[in-house]
Amino acid sequence: MASIEERLDKMEAKIKEPKFRDTTGKANEVNYWVFDYAPEHELIVRDRIEYLKNKNSRGTDGFELFVYDLYDLLIAHLQDKNFMEKCYQMEEKRGIVKVASAIQRSLKITDKDNMIVEYIAEHTSENSVVFLTGVGKCYPLLQSPEVFNKILYNMPQHFAKVPMVLFYPGTYTEQELIIFNEVHEDNYYRAFRLVR
C-alpha cells in the first residue's frame, strides 16, 4: 500500500493534468472527487495542501487552486451572526443533533441560496481546482453526504467543469463514507476517489 506522501504526490500530479480540468467527470458525470486518508495523517495532508496553495500562487500551473476549509466557513458564519453563544447554550440544553440542525438552517443548507455555495461561487474563478477541507473538524455539524448533496450539487451550472476535491479523514469506497474510519455516514457513490 502506498504511503500518504506517495498518495499526495499522485494527487498533485493528477490535478495538474489538463484533462482533469477539461472534463465533467467520467462519462460526463459530476466532477467531484474524494481524497481519503487515515485520520492520523491529518497534519501531513494539511501541510501538503498549504504547500500546494503557496506553490500554485506563482501562476505556473495553468489554473488557480482555491482551498476552502468548511469548518472555518461555518464558524465565520456563526460569528458573523453572533450565534456562537446560542450554539453553546443549545448544545447544553438540547444536544448536538439540535445544534447541527439549527446551524444547517442558518446556513440555508437545503436552499438554492445556500450560504456556503454562495461564498464559494463568489470567490472562485472558473479556471480552477477547488479543495474542500475541514470536514472532519465539522463533524457532526456538517457531514460529508450533506457537503455533496446540499453544497456541491447546488453550485451554479458554470462551475460544472470545476473539479471539486473533498479531503476526507476516513475511508471512501465510492459507495461508503466512513469518517475517522469509525462512523458510517450515508452511502454516496457519485464522487470518485482521486487516488487509490
Rank of each mutant, 00 (worst) to 15 (best):
F63N: 06
N149T: 03
V97I: 14
V30D: 12
S125A: 11
S144V: 07
R58I: 13
E91D: 15
L70F: 00
L74Y: 06
N127W: 09
A102E: 12
Y172K: 04
L74M: 11
E176W: 05
S57M: 12
I120C: 02
I151Q: 07
K53E: 15
T60G: 06
L52I: 06
T171K: 14
K93S: 15
P169M: 06
G25E: 02
D22N: 13
I96S: 08
L152F: 11
Q104S: 00
E92F: 09
I103V: 15
A191R: 01
P140T: 04
F159M: 12
F35S: 01
A2K: 11
R48V: 03
P163K: 07
R94V: 09
E40I: 04
G170P: 00
I179A: 09
A121S: 15
K161D: 10
Q143Y: 08
P156K: 07
E146R: 09
E29I: 00
P145Q: 10
H158D: 12
E91F: 01
P140M: 02
K26Q: 10
D47K: 07
W33Q: 03
V30K: 14
I75K: 04
Y188H: 13
I178R: 15
E5L: 08
H77I: 05
K81V: 05
Y37S: 02
K137C: 02
I120R: 02
F20I: 06
N187D: 12
P163V: 02
V195W: 07
S57H: 07
M115E: 15
L142E: 08
E50F: 01
S128G: 05
I178C: 13
G59W: 11
R7H: 01
R58D: 14
E122W: 03
I109C: 02
I4T: 03
N114P: 07
F63G: 05
H41F: 08
E64Q: 14
M1Y: 12
L8D: 04
Q79V: 02
Y189P: 06
F180P: 05
R7V: 00
P140H: 01
K55R: 13
G136L: 06
N127V: 12
F20L: 10
L177I: 12
A191H: 00
P140R: 00
R94A: 14
D186S: 10
W33M: 05
I75E: 10
E42N: 09
K112G: 06
I15S: 02
N31D: 04
P169T: 01
F66G: 04
D80P: 01
N114R: 06
G136I: 03
L166H: 00
K98D: 14
A13H: 11
R21N: 05
H77P: 03
N187H: 13
K26P: 05
E92T: 03
A121L: 06
V67E: 12
I179D: 08
P169H: 05
E40C: 03
S101L: 11
E126N: 05
L107S: 00
Y188E: 13
D111M: 15
L52M: 15
E126M: 08
E126K: 13
R105V: 01
H123Y: 04
